[in-house]
Design a protein around this nucleic acid. Structure first.
Length: 509
RNA sequence: GGUCCGUUCGUCUAGCCAGGUCAGGACGCCAGGUUUUCAUCCUGGUAACACGGGUUCAAAUCCCGUACGGACUACCA
C-alpha cells in the first residue's frame, strides 16, 4: 500500500439513531472513496461510556445496509487496522497521551469537575468566560503549576487526573479545508482541551487523531460542527510529529422552516422522518418514524440526500449510487447549510417509482394487497402497477389508485353519481352491456373502437356515456384509461360490474 | 459574550476561483394544452444576487465594512 492511498472514515458515536445529516456525511465519504478508488472505513467512537445506548450501533449498521452504502473496513467487515471500535483500543490511547507528556505537549490536571463548574459560575457572574488556558492554568491544580514533588504525591495517592493539551502561546494555526479554503486562528484564544479522561478513556480529540493516523486516513470529511476543534487537531498532529490528513467540513442540514439545524422535533412537527429507519428508544419506549417505514425507496432517499449540499455541475438530478460515485467531487460541495425540503423528497421517490420495473413494484405492492384480504396473481398485479404507478409517490399509495382492479366498487362516489348518472344513463349502460357481451376481442383497443363507434352512431354524448361507464367500473371518476381497465379485469367482470351498478344506481327519475 | 463559518428565486442550486450572458435548471405555485375522468405528461408564467462602500470601462463574481444566520465554547462526540 502506498502512502498516497485514499482512505476515509465515518466515525459515529453509538448514542442513538443516526440522523440523516450523519447519513449524508457518511454518503459523501463513501462517494469520495469510490470516486478515487479509495477505502471507506466504519469506526465506532464509543469513548463516552455514560452515553452508551443499547442497539444504537446495530441501528447504524442496519441503516447503512438499507441505504446500500458499503464499507470496505470496519466493525462488521474487519480489516488490517482494527480493532475498529474505540473501546477495544482503550489500552493504546494512554500510551499516546504519555508521549505528549514526555514531549511537554501535555500535562496532568487534578481539578475536579465540580471545581471547574464552580469556577465557570464565578466567571459567568462577572460576565466573563472561564477558559482553561495559559493565563489560568498557572493558578489551577495541575502539573504545570504544582512542583514536581507535589504532582508526584498526588499521583501516588491515586488522585483522579486528566491529561490536558498544553496549548502553545502566540502561535498562528494555519489550516486548509477542502471546502472552505485556508483558515487561520490564534492559538491564544484556544483552551487546554482534555485529551485523556479520569475514567481512563481518551476524549474524542485524542482518539480521533490517534486512530486517523494509525488507520492511515488520508481525508477527514466530517460535519461543520467540528470546525472549531480543527486547530486543536492540527496542533495534535504537529505535536506527535505526524502528517495531517486533508480536511473537509461539510455544511449543516437546516430545518425546513424557521431557523437552525434540522432536529428530530422538526420531523415530528412537520410530519417527515429525520432518521433512515424507525427507532424505538430502549429507555422510554418511544418510537420515531424512519424513511424506510414511511415508504421511501433507499435509492430515492440517498439521491435526495446527496443533492442537499452537492451538485454535479450539470443539470442531472436522478443518480444511482454508481453514477453519483462517478460524478462526485468534494470541490462541488457547497459551503452553506441546506434547508431540508420534504416536498422534494416526495418528488424524488416518485421519480424512482416511475423508474422501477413493474415486477419489482408488484413484489412490494403484494403485502398491501394481502392486507386488504385480496388474493391476486402476481402477473396481474404487475400489469395493474404498470397502469397506476405514475399516479402515486409511494408503494403504499398504490392501493388507493388501484383498488378497483381487485374488487368491484362497493360504493359509488356520491358527487360523481350526481354529476354523471343521468336519466339516460340507465338505458345507455344497458345497451352498452349488450354491446360488450357480444364482443369476441376484448382488447383495450378493440373495445374502445367498438364502443366509440356505437356512441357516434347513436349520437350519444361521448362524455356522458364514458363517464357513466367509468362510474360503474371504478366507482368514482378516477383511474387510468377506461378501456385499459376493462381489458385487464376482463369481459366477464366488466359485464358483472355494469349489472351491479345498474342495480345499485337504478334508473334516475 | 468570545472564536470560527456562512449569505443567489419560497426551497435545492448553476454561475464566483480565472469580472462582461435578458442571472440558468429543478421542486413548489399559477395558467394553458393533452387525457372526453383523475393523475402523469407537455408548454408558458411567477420569483433571487442580504445591505453599504471601494477597485474597475464593467462586479453576483475581487476587496473592506455592516446586518443577519449558524456552529462551537464539557473529563460529549
Amino acid at each position: 500500500m502506498s502512502e498516497h492511498d485514499i482512505r476515509v472514515r465515518f466515525a459515529p458515536s453509538p448514542t442513538g439513531p443516526l440522523h440523516i445529516g450523519g447519513v449524508r456525511t457518511a454518503l459523501y465519504n463513501y462517494l469520495f472513496a469510490r470516486k478515487n478508488g479509495g477505502k471507506f472505513i466504519l469506526r465506532i467512537e464509543d469513548t463516552d461510556q455514560t452515553r452508551f445506548v443499547p442497539g444504537a450501533e446495530d441501528y447504524i449498521i442496519r441503516a447503512f445496509d438499507w441505504c446500500g452504502i458499503e464499507f470496505d473496513e470496519g466493525v462488521t467487515k474487519g480489516g488490517d487496522y482494527g480493532p475498529y471500535k474505540q473501546s477495544e483500543r482503550k489500552a493504546m490511547y494512554k500510551e499516546y497521551a504519555d508521549r505528549l507528556m514526555v514531549s511537554g505537549h501535555a500535562y496532568y490536571a487534578f481539578d475536579t469537575a465540580e471545581e471547574l463548574t464552580e469556577l465557570r459560575k464565578k466567571f459567568e457572574a462577572k460576565k466573563e468566560t472561564f477558559t482553561y488556558n495559559a493565563a489560568e492554568r498557572k493558578r489551577l491544580k495541575n502539573s504545570l503549576a504544582l512542583t514536581e514533588a507535589e504532582t508526584q504525591k498526588l499521583l501516588e495517592a491515586n488522585t483522579p487526573f486528566v491529561i490536558r493539551f498544553k496549548m502553545p502561546e502566540d502561535q498562528t494555526v494555519r489550516m486548509d479545508d477542502l471546502i472552505r479554503g485556508t483558515i487561520e486562528v490564534q492559538a491564544n484564544v484556544l483552551d487546554d482541551k482534555v485529551l485523556f479522561k479520569s475514567d481512563g478513556m481518551p476524549t474524542y480529540h485524542l482518539a480521533n487523531v490517534v486512530d486517523d493516523h494509525l488507520m492511515k486516513i488520508s481525508h477527514v470529511i466530517r460535519g461543520e460542527e467540528w470546525l472549531p476543534s480543527l486547530p486543536l487537531h492540527v496542533l495534535l498532529y504537529d505535536a506527535f510529529g505526524w502528517e495531517t490528513p486533508q480536511f473537509a467540513h461539510l455544511p449543516l442540514l437546516l430545518k425546513p422552516d424557521g431557523k437552525g439545524k434540522l432536529s428530530k422535533r422538526d420531523g415530528d412537527r412537520l410530519g417527515f422522518p429525520v432518521f433512515p429507519l424507525q427507532w424505538t428508544d430502549p429507555k422510554t419506549g418511544e418510537t420515531t418514524r424512519g424513511y424506510r417505514e414511511d415508504g421511501y425507496f433507499p435509492e430515492a432517499f440517498i439521491n435526495m440526500l446527496a443533492l442537499l449540499g452537492w451538485n454535479p455541475g450539470d443539470e442531472r438530478e436522478i443518480f444511482s449510487l454508481d453514477e453519483m460515485s462517478a460524478a462526485f467531487s468534494i470541490e462541488r460541495v457547497g459551503k452553506s447549510g441546506s434547508r431540508f425540503n420534504p416536498e422534494k423528497a416526495k418528488w424524488f421517490n416518485h421519480q424512482y417509482m416511475l423508474k422501477k420495473s413493474n415486477k419489482e413494484l408488484a413484489g412490494q405492492f403484494l403485502p398491501f394487497i394481502k392486507k386488504e384480504g385480496v388474493i391476486a396473481d402476481i402477473d396481474y398485479i404487475e400489469k395493474v402497477v404498470g397502469l397506476v404507478k405514475e399516479r402515486a409517490h409511494f408503494v403504499h399509495e398504490l392501493w388507493d389508485q388501484a383498488d378497483f382492479f381487485f374488487k368491484a366498487p362497493s360504493e359509488f362516489d356520491p358527487k360523481a353519481v350526481k354529476k354523471r348518472w343521468k336519466q339516460v344513463s340507465y338505458d345507455q349502460m344497458t345497451e352498452l352491456k349488450t354491446l360488450l357481451s357480444g364482443l369476441d376481442n376484448f382488447s383495450s383497443g378493440n373495445a374502445e373502437s367498438v364502443v366509440k363507434k356505437w356512441i357516434e352512431e347513436k349520437e350519444y354524448s361521448m362524455g356522458a356515456v364514458l363517464n357513466a361507464f367509468r362510474l360503474l367500473i371504478v366507482g368514482a371518476l378516477k383511474g387510468p384509461h377506461l378501456f385499459d381497465i376493462i381489458a385487464l379485469i376482463g369481459q366477464e367482470e366488466t359485464l358483472r360490474r355494469i349489472e351491479i351498478g345498474l342495480y345499485e344506481l337504478g334508473r334516475k327519475e
